[in-house]
């Protein structure tokens, strides 16, 4: 039984280290601000803004990678100018994350990169809902095998065969 616990202890420890690595890897990417946060912030600097492309505001040449549009949330709207590689997935009424700098004086967000909305919640729940049930199931099975073996020996029912 001790051997079983040691093996599982090592495995759980490795799994915890791995999940911490994953969380650290994505921490920076999870931090986004909304357009209404950005309007209130007086500071000029680089941000990741998440919002929806307002309908009827997308102008410019998507193929060339030079477009402007309004990014909105429930309360506010900001003007965005994008220069960069051709955006593959940009269209109106779509939620996107824009990476770039906020020009507080001109009140325009100059973006150089577009990230898709990162649905990390879905990804994390899919992985957890896979590995936790399998782990619990396998652990209880392995434990029961050891218990059964012990029970067979203890009850003196065991007769070596052959």
């Amino acid at each position: 039984m001790t051997g079983l616990y040691i093996r599982w202890g090592i495995f759980v420890l490795l799994a915890i280290i791995l999940s911490m690595l994953v969380v650290r890897h994505y921490e920076a990417q999870l931090a986004t601000v909304s357009p209404s946060d950005l309007i209130l912030s007086p500071s000029t600097g680089s941000f990741r803004v998440q919002g929806m492309v307002k309908s009827g505001t997308l102008k410019g040449d998507v193929e060339q990678g030079a477009v402007q549009f309004e990014l909105v949330d429930d309360a506010a709207a900001i003007r965005v100018q994008y220069h960069g590689p051709p955006p593959e997935n940009l269209r109106e009424l779509k939620t996107v994350v824009m990476i770039g700098t906020w020009d507080a004086t001109a009140r325009v967000f100059r973006a150089h990169e577009i990230a898709l909305v990162s649905n990390y919640g879905f990804v994390a729940s899919a992985y957890l809902l896979t590995f936790i049930p399998i782990g619990v199931f396998l652990f209880s099975m392995s434990r029961k095998v050891v218990v059964l073996m012990q029970a067979i020996k203890d009850s003196k029912l065991y007769e070596p065969e052959g």
């Binding site: 593959e88 997935n89 898709l116 990162s118 649905n119 990390y120 879905f122 990804v123």
Partner: peptide, 8 residues
């Protein structure tokens, strides 16, 4: 096209 969710 799918972004991060492809990891599922």
């Amino acid at each position: 096209y799918q972004g991060e969710v492809v990891r599922i």
